[in-house]
Design a protein around this nucleic acid. Structure first.
Lengths: 226, 226
DNA sequence: TGCAGATCTTCAGACATTCTTAAGCGAAAC
DNA sequence: GTTTCGCTTAAGAATGTCTGAAGATCTGCA
């Protein structure tokens, strides 16, 4: 297993690296600043990234956003100082898989790291299907009968979120929290509008009722048999 | 998802419970002391237990040890006060999956709760059966012979509450208190109406008497076998 | 900078479902 | 036989959802 450790406090970094090498026997690369981390993360194939938040040149959140923006699905465990707690929600929304608050127990860190790698083990399939519609989550394209359906960014985000949770009821609140920053106060019907447009675009015959409405509970994507 | 919240400060408990119900849509049971918590944890199937450390009658650590001693694999997230940090290692050794230090952000609590439930994956069985009816508490769906039965939110809530207490007599008052957050002043027959509709929808032959009426006492769900 | 086109958000009215109340009826308890 | 309790039905109230349209915002391009 290959791990990228991004941490600017050198002594702490060495301690963690040693523990990861000795305990679970990971291969550990180390980076001390955000830019180096981003470059490494994008060019190598890691199973896990341990990411400190407070970094020189480019902070952890930006690193995370950059690599997620480039489509990387690598597991990311964030290390935060106590004072940085406020941004944790932001972090999770940006795509962090887990986080630990400093100071932490090294044993705990290793346990969590292993758990994350285990979890991400079932490699995510980039092609998902429902009805006669096919979604390619790498290219971020949607097709029916090989024909591409043009979706706006927001529409795609809604669809992608739903398709990652097939058959599960997803509340509008959950969709809002996923699409925007956590504290979204407005009472608006953006979600309804996007879903409405999505339905119109996906339309068709078999999939016309693919995004089901469960009044008072949310939406559910019906997926055909696999 | 079904969550047991063990917290003796009532106002805090209510706030957490509300957030868990509204956000991720969990069904939340509340306990105020360690003994009640232990009983509930051992007799019901929870997806997650939120456990305060400092409790009347039996402290959180003891609760945790008892239920782990009985082989329960349920995910446990411990809520600790700042002064209790010393015992965190002890907690993790006793089988806690995660912990949060008070005061914490509600959004953070929800994020962690979801993460834990996600991580523990298919630990708890979300499928419950009575008669020839099958209830999937994850999808919030009800089926008979693979065919989905559409229930309104209130109807589902009644059924879910009953199905988590099979063979137990549940009074109308208890149902009312579970379905509505504040005190219900009016004398009304809402429960009777919902139960009536439920029976009609679940209907069928074998399960026609599945929701038993115990005059003057309440309702009881008859379950085939476990 | 200014323009054109696309996208996002808000609003409002139509529409649909669900909740609650109330009332009559039937069954069990006394 | 009377009373109490629960069941069922129907109807109005309350709430949630859909959709078209319009204004706001963003983006690429000259």
């Amino acid at each position: 297993m290959r791990v990228l450790l991004v941490e600017d406090e050198l002594r702490l970094s060495e301690n963690i690296a040693d523990a990861l090498r000795e305990g679970p026997g990971f291969a550990v690369d180390q980076a001390e600043d955000g830019e180096t981390a981003t470059t490494l993360a994008l060019n190598d194939h890691y199973d896990l990234i341990l990411l400190d938040l407070n970094l020189p040149k480019k902070d952890g959140l930006n690193v995370l956003r950059t690599i997620r923006g480039r489509g990387s699905k690598v597991a990311v465990l964030v290390l935060t100082a106590r004072a940085e707690r406020a941004s944790i929600i932001e972090l999770l929304n940006a795509g962090a898989d887990d986080y630990l608050t400093k100071p932490f127990d090294l044993g705990e860190l290793i346990a969590r790291a292993k758990a994350l790698i285990r979890r991400s083990g079932s490699a995510t399939v980039p092609l998902m299907r429902f009805g006669d519609v096919e979604v390619n989550t790498v290219e971020q394209t949607v097709r029916r009968d090989g024909e591409e359906i043009q979706l706006s960014p927001m529409e795609y985000r809604v669809l992608e979120y739903l398709i990652h949770r097939p058959r599960v009821v997803v509340s509008k609140r959950e969709l809002l929290e996923h699409m925007y920053d956590f504290n979204w106060e407005h009472h608006s019907n953006v979600v309804e509008v996007h879903v409405s447009n999505l339905r119109r675009k996906l339309g068709g015959s078999a999939s016309s009722d693919s995004i089901e409405t469960l009044r008072g509970r949310g939406y559910r994507l019906q997926v055909g048999r696999e």
